[in-house]
């Protein structure tokens, strides 16, 4: 699709969403935000009734739909070493009501797992087999700063469809790719947007952007980080950190992993598991030496990877401003403060 093309803009009545999803469910496996045990997470759904629309954002990102936390890459019987290729997706999928920040994070992961240098077949199959139906963010939180890192609460980039709740029982839906348009064709109760719908859309978009009050100044940050690798600042900022993996595991862009082989009597499996730079064994070398000996070095690595190394390599910051690390950190480590402190150093 060419940039700027307007494929299709429609209005869908809230009460029609169920019927639409039911129809799509015949061809797709649909994942949507569901609230269970007080937690909003993406789960496969069989009815629109399960969708928890009233969510700020999901606790975990939908990242594991593309890059699972633990995955058997291949396995083989112990006696014969012969790769078995399995189909990963049985059915194409839809991630329904994904937030624009999380969609943007997938574009960042694409650079890692689907680049000229390296194509990860596991990631790519999931990515290509999955459509993203975005739900614009009408209630950005205090910890959100998407607009500082190239995104926005109504950002369309990397989505197939973007829905926005107009608040009057209607959703404004825009198809952004041909595949997205295909999804709309499965809905026979669409209406044409009226002038007042468009005005409403513009208004709620502006209000949402206004609500993103947190700002993170990242301009020139990577150069600053180059200079302060040995600064005493790192002694200060890590003090409170417990060294757990919450920030990395809830982060939509963190993508470090470790490969392990596991065997039982009959089979050998090669497993890929998420890893975290905040863990002590992350960089332990075979000799037993650990170059990142304390939280200080680990915290520095996390910041450097996101705001320096990734920028150097791919030209973008590895952060989409979703604020999950701020929200869920047990000791309220706040990346906004850390960046501010770095800038003032």
């Amino acid at each position: 699709m060419r940039k700027g093309d307007r494929l299709k803009e429609k209005i869908i009545q809230k009460e029609q969403i169920g019927k639409w999803l039911e129809k799509l469910g015949k061809d797709y496996e649909i994942w949507a935000p569901v609230k269970r045990n007080g937690l909003v997470l993406f789960h496969p759904i069989s009815s629109a009734k399960e969708v928890y629309f009233n969510f700020l954002n999901s606790k975990k990102t939908p990242k594991d739909l593309f890059f699972p936390q633990s995955e058997v890459l291949f396995s083989f019987p112990k006696e014969e070493i012969e790769k078995e290729v399995e189909t990963i997706l049985q059915k194409p999928r839809i991630v329904f009501a994904i937030r624009p920040c999380d969609a943007r994070s997938l574009a960042l992961l694409d650079q890692v797992f689907d680049s000229e240098d390296y194509q990860d077949p596991y990631y790519i199959e999931r990515r290509e087999g999955t459509l993203l139906v975005g739900l614009a963010c009408t209630h950005p939180q205090q910890s959100c700063f998407c607009t500082s890192v190239g995104g926005g609460p109504f950002a369309k980039a990397h989505l197939d469809l973007l829905m926005a709740d107009l608040g009057d029982g209607k959703y404004f839906v825009e198809a952004l790719t041909e595949r997205g348009e295909g999804l709309l064709e499965k809905n026979d109760s669409l209406q044409e947007p009226q002038k007042k719908d468009r005005e409403k859309l513009a208004k709620i978009k502006e209000e949402a952007e206004e609500k993103v009050k947190s700002k993170l100044v990242t301009k020139g940050l990577e150069k600053k980080l180059d200079k302060i690798f040995d600064s005493s600042l790192w002694d200060r900022v890590h003090q409170r950190c417990l060294g757990c993996g919450i920030c990395t595991y809830l982060c939509p862009t963190c993508h470090c992993f470790a490969l392990l082989d596991e065997k039982d009597k009959a089979r050998v499996e090669r497993i890929r598991n998420w890893d975290s730079c905040m863990f002590p064994e992350f960089t332990v070398e075979a000799s037993g030496h650990n170059p990142r000996i304390s939280n200080r070095e680990r915290m520095r690595q996390r910041v450097m990877h996101k705001f320096n190394y990734f920028v150097e390599r791919y030209g973008e910051t590895a952060c989409v401003g979703c604020g999950r690390c701020i929200q869920s950190c047990p000791v309220n480590m706040d990346i906004r403060e850390i960046i501010e402190e770095i800038r003032n150093e």
Binding site: Q69, L242, Y249, L260, N273, P280
Partner: peptide
């Protein structure tokens, strides 16, 4: 999600190396 926040915050968990973190030998899968 194996973030180990429960262990790291626990006042009683202070092993210099936790059994789940050991890789030689590996007691636990990841």
């Amino acid at each position: 999600i194996r973030c180990y926040a429960c262990r790291n915050v626990c006042p009683a968990c202070y092993c210099p190396q936790c059994f789940v973190d050991q890789s030689l030998p590996t007691w636990f899968g990841r």
